[in-house]
Amino acid sequence: MNGSLLAKARGVGAAKAPLAGRIMPPGFTSLLSRYGIYLFMVVFLLVAAVAAPSFFSRGNLSNLVLQIVPLAIVACGQAMVILVRGLDLSVSSVMATAAVVATSFSGHDADIPSIVLLSLAIGMCAGLVNGLLVVKRNVSPFLATLATMIVLQGLRFAWTHGAPSGLMPPLLHRIGAGTWGFIPMNLPVLLAVALPLVLVLHRTTLGRRVVITGGNPMTGRLLGYPVDAIVIGAYMLSGCLAAIAGIVLGGYAQIVDNWVGRGFELDSIVAAVLGGFALSGGRGNVAGVIAGSIVLALAGNIVLLIGLPVQFQIILKGVVIVFAAACYARR
C-alpha cells in the first residue's frame, strides 16, 4: 500500500528532542508492542486450560497444530511482504491453485515431485507478477495482489471447469492430516520453512538488508542494496510459501474445492500484524507471526471446547483481532 493506507511520514514537530542525560530505555508500551503477542498466547492457553480440561488432550492438541501449520506458513510469507511495505492478497488464490494442482495428477505418491514443483512455480510466478507490478509499475500492493488473486482464480476455474475432482496422493494427505505418535506430520513442514526464515532474517546480512530496505527503501538504495530484487523476492517467497501451505491444507482437507484457503489472505495479514510486523514496514520477527497464528487458531479452538456454536469461532476471532490490535499494534 506504499504508505497509502499506512502511516504517513509527514507531520509537524517530528520527534521530540530528548534532553541529554534523560534518555530512558523503552517503556512499558514499547515492550508490550514487542512481546504482547506472547502474553496473549499464554493468556489464551490458560483460559483454554481452565475452561476446558479436554484442551490438553493429545487429540485436541495435535489437531490444533494441524490447523495452525498452514496458516503459520502463509503468514510467514505474508510477513515478509509486509516487512517491505507491501501486502499480499493473492496468497489464498495461490493456496487454492496449489491444492487443485495436487489433485490434478493421477493421485499416486509418485506425482508428488511434479506437484510440488508445479505449485512452487505457480506461486513464484504470481509473486513475480505482484513484485513487478509493485516495483516497476508502482501499483499499490493492495491492488496489484488483488488483481493477481482474481486472475489466478479465473484461471483455476477455467482449468477445473468449476468443480475440481481428483485424488490427493495419499502421502500428501498423511502429511496434511496425519500424526506420527502425537506429533502432527505437518509440523516439520512449518519448521522447515520457519527456522531457515528466522535464521536468514534475523541472523544474516541478507536479512538485515531486507529489514533496512523495508524500513526505508531509499536508504537501501543509497546503501547499494538490490532494493528491487529484495521487494520482488519477498513477493515471490510469499507466493512459494502460499503454494506449500496450499498443498498442506489441501492434504488436510483431502477433498479439494476451488476455495481451499479462502480467508487466509486476511487471516495471514492479521497473524503477521498481531505478531508485531508494522504495516508501515521495516519491523517484526518471525516467531511473533507464529504466535499470532497460534492465537488465531486458539480463539477458534476454545469456542469448540466450551461447547459454543461453531459460529462463535468467527465472532471470537473478530473480537481477538480488534482487541489485540488495540492493545499493542496501534498506529
Binding site: 493506507l5 499506512l6 486476511l266 495479514i269 492479521v270 500484524v273 504495516l279 459460529q311 462463535f312 469461532q313 468467527i314 465472532i315 471470537l316 476471532k317 473478530g318 473480537v319 481477538v320 483481532i321 480488534v322 490490535a325 488495540a326 499494534a329 496501534r330 498506529r331
Partner: peptide, 18 residues
C-alpha cells in the same frame, strides 16, 4: 482504538459474519 482501519474493519467483518 487507533488501530489501522484494515484491521478494525476486518475484525468487525468477522464478528458480523459470525
Amino acid at each position: 482504538l487507533r488501530v489501522h482501519p484494515l484491521i478494525v474493519t476486518l475484525g468487525m467483518g468477522a464478528i458480523l459474519q459470525g
